[in-house]
Design a protein around this nucleic acid. Structure first.
Lengths: 174, 174
DNA sequence: TAACACCGTGCGTTATAACGCACAAATTAA
DNA sequence: TTAATTTGTGCGTTATAACGCACGGTGTTA
């Protein structure tokens, strides 16, 4: 049984618990039989797409979310006193997104290892300039501009310019 | 048969065509039988999660992508001369995201109808203040703050404050 | 032209998803 | 405390997913 069955089981159990639904109540809301819900939670059966769709709509979640592994929130290296990090929006399992605002002093540099496949970042530079190095690619973003890249590669933020740089990092996990 | 079956069928056909694979070749790569592949493409059967997983891995795509409809880019109402819109990042099919920067003059208001289920927006206010009305909920965001909401509900942006408001809108489609 | 290879479809068979129902255990109500 | 209700599991039945295989159609080659 692949990871996805495990994920669906975990998600279903959690959602049921959150809503305070018994298998019977959940069956009424989703249109999937109580016995089948039990089988899914115990990973004793591989649900069809039609059944998965019933689950997603009855539980009011997206199929993607129901099938995907929970991602670990990204952690910035907070040890740099020349880099200030403020979390604007916490990681949300529903949207698989988190948002940070960073302020990098002149000369500051921050490196991130590759994240899980499918993760991407969108940066919006509010003031100053920022150099982004993604794999072998280097890009400079100036104030008012945005840049999106595949965060499943090692990447660095560098402020090689005079004065501080302020930017917003939006991270979307897949 | 729900939309998802139609989506899977379309995706499978397209991928097969792109790779130049016959049903036989595709069966060899995915471990799903030729006859079943045909059934899926003709939407004559609802594949199980195990089969979907085989497809996704054999075709080297994510499950999410295989199951989700291609989204249409959002369109802002450009008719308002009191609202300036700049597209920072175009809609990208891979990330299903697009990014805009908006500047709303004092008193300006912009309304959006509900988007497709699963769409969400993240707003970052750079300067000024902004009122967001989502369904029955109203929130005020001030400069430096971010807010995320379900864009599958009708929503409005309103600048009820003196002076202009500048903010970034990040739209993620599901 | 005939022979061959490949293609997608449909059929019958097997495996399993999905169900309704009964039941034991757990929980709640009197 | 007992009785009533609810809960999750397992069983047998039904429906259907998934398969191997045969077949007609198409294209290529000798």
């Amino acid at each position: 049984m692949q990871n996805n069955h495990h994920t669906v089981a975990r998600r279903l159990k959690q959602l049921r618990k959150d809503k305070g639904w018994s298998l019977t109540a959940c069956a009424e809301h989703t249109g999937v039989s109580k016995a089948m819900l039990g089988q899914i939670e115990r990973q004793e059966s591989s649900p069809t797409l039609a059944t998965l769709w019933k689950l997603a709509t009855g539980l009011n979640v997206s199929l993607s979310w129901l099938l995907n592994d929970e991602q670990q929130p990204m952690t910035f290296d907070f040890a740099h006193e020349r880099i200030q990090v403020e979390r604007l929006l916490a990681f949300d399992p529903q949207t698989q997104q988190e948002v940070y605002k960073l302020c990098m002093a002149e000369g500051a540099k921050s490196h991130s290892d590759a994240h899980r496949h499918g993760t991407f970042e969108m940066l919006y530079v509010q003031s100053g300039r920022l150099d982004i190095v993604v794999g072998e690619t280097q890009v400079t973003i100036k104030a008012g501009d945005a840049y999106r890249f595949d965060a499943a590669q090692p990447h660095s933020y560098i402020n090689r310019y005079s004065g501080k740089t302020e930017f917003v990092a939006v991270i979307n996990y897949r």
